[in-house]
């Protein structure tokens, strides 16, 4: 972690640079979503918009986490701590979604939820 004034000055430039990337990423996401010319895949909202949007969001979030929250300088323990939370969320979301996609009834006969 940056402790000396020189190191801090250097990281300030990094912070500004990362901030710029975050701004750009946001604009890119909005453009992909709103400008018809940039619409990949089918017209309107489809899985590609979802994938692009979430990928860009994940990259932005990782930048904030690793650089702004200095997770990449932090002790391993902290990193694993935070990662454990993420793991658990993925298991919650993933397994819950799996339950939705694997019902006991054949969807042809059962259209309710």
């Amino acid at each position: 972690m940056a402790d000396t004034p020189e190191a801090i000055k250097k990281s300030i430039r990094t912070y500004l640079f990362i901030g710029g990337i975050l701004f750009a990423g946001t604009i890119l996401t909005v453009l992909i979503a709103t400008v018809p010319a940039l619409d990949m895949g089918a017209h309107g909202f489809d899985k590609w918009d979802c994938i692009f949007g979430l990928t860009i969001a994940t990259i932005k979030a990782s930048l904030v986490a690793f650089v702004f929250m200095h997770l990449n300088h932090e002790k391993k323990a902290v990193y694993w701590l935070f990662a454990s939370g993420l793991c658990m969320v993925c298991s919650l979301a993933g397994l819950t979604a799996l339950a939705l996609w694997d019902p006991i009834f054949d969807s042809f006969f059962y259209s309710g939820h």
Binding site: D49, G53, A57, F68
Partner: peptide, 16 residues
């Protein structure tokens, strides 16, 4: 962290 959450909230709720 608050910013991080919003980074996900914005595309998911506004753009999708």
């Amino acid at each position: 962290f608050v910013d991080l959450v919003w980074i996900f909230v914005f595309p998911i709720l506004y753009l999708m």
